[in-house]
């Protein structure tokens, strides 16, 4: 039992058991409609978790993702409305996200400022930018074609889910099959040793954050399309859900340990918990408590697993 839970596949076991229990005991859970709804509901968290995984694996931290998602969604809507071109809006959002991420990375890597503090600052700055640019109000989308990003389907499955799956595949590949991915894990394992082994540590960290910003923009565009507007207050608290999902997925906060499958499972566990609570009509207030407890359990599990692996 202990081996099963703390070993390599422990998470998958927990996931399968949780899934089976929920499927049996929660009515209407295992329906096509609810399954698609469940996947839709984790799109934002799932997409951002791809790069948060890299960030945590390199011993860094990013609190600014929620603000960046809201800000880039806002940029996408406002630029589309202003220019009449959705493509231009999307491009502007992707660029804005990348710039925010790059700035985070630059400050953290070059000035050696703690990632927690840096992104705590940018989290507020970027949220402020989103509020200022819209004067604090939601900005509706003019061109109905923008809605179609989220509404369109391919093989009966909505596009955002495809995007999330594609990113899972891409980042799984990046983590395991590229020099960049391996360098990220090495930096998390021992930054100084990695530097002395010839890894460009500063540059790699900047790339991680720039990618994080880019991926937040993708999530921001999809979210804006789904809620048919740019909302300056969108995705508040997203950073915590994403970090919870990653930690739940076995990403070590001490760095150096991460798997894409683990993160996917982490995201799904979070999604299932929320979905099941909604189906059971558990009031939203109580859901906060459950989410907190899940995070706490995740950290405890991480701790136990680290000890089982003989690391401090």
């Amino acid at each position: 039992m202990k081996k099963l839970l703390l070993g390599e596949q422990g998470l998958l076991v927990i996931f399968v058991v949780a899934f089976a229990l929920v499927a049996i005991f929660v009515p209407n859970f295992l329906t096509e409609r609810n399954m698609l709804g469940l996947l839709q509901s984790v799109v934002t968290v799932g997409i951002v978790a791809c790069t948060m995984m890299l960030c945590l694996a390199a011993r860094d931290f990013d609190l600014s993702v929620g603000s960046t998602v809201a800000f880039t969604g806002m940029v996408a809507v406002m630029v589309s409305n202003g220019s009449g071109s959705i493509l231009l809006g999307i491009a502007a959002a992707l660029a804005a996200g990348t710039v925010v991420g790059w700035l985070n990375g630059f400050v953290i890597a070059k000035f050696h400022i703690n990632a927690l503090i840096t992104t705590l600052a940018t989290m507020q700055i970027v949220r402020g930018l989103a509020l200022i640019s819209s004067d604090g109000r939601a900005v509706g989308i003019n061109d109905p074609a923008f809605f179609n990003i989220a509404l369109s389907k391919f093989l009966t499955i909505p596009t955002p889910i495809w995007v999330m799956v594609a990113l899972f595949v891409i980042f799984g590949f990046i983590l395991n099959h590229t020099v960049f991915g391996k360098n990220v894990l090495a930096i998390g394992g021992n930054p100084e040793a990695s530097r002395l082994a010839g890894v460009k540590v500063d540059r790699t960290r900047i790339y991680i954050f720039a990618l994080q910003g880019l991926v937040c923009a993708i999530a921001g565009i999809l979210l804006a399309s789904r809620i048919t507007s740019g909302q300056p207050n969108a995705a508040v608290g997203l950073e915590l859900s994403v970090i919870s999902a990653c930690v739940l997925g076995g990403v070590s906060l001490a760095g150096g340990r991460a798997t894409m499958t683990g993160v996917i499972v982490g995201v799904m566990i979070m999604g299932i918990a929320e979905n099941a609570m909604n189906l059971l009509n558990i009031p939203a207030f109580y859901q906060y408590i459950v989410r907190g407890v899940i995070l706490l359990l995740a950290v405890l599990l991480d701790n136990l697993r680290s000890r089982a692996l003989g690391r401090r």
């Binding site: 391996k182 894990l185 690391r311």
Partner: peptide, 25 residues
């Protein structure tokens, strides 16, 4: 040493650039 990573990872960390193509291992 890079803790938490395998022997293979620790050996290849630098020299992998010779066998990788376009950043892919």
């Amino acid at each position: 040493i890079i803790q938490g990573r395998s022997i293979a990872e620790n050996i290849n960390i630098s020299s992998r650039r010779h066998s990788a193509h376009a950043g892919i291992l």
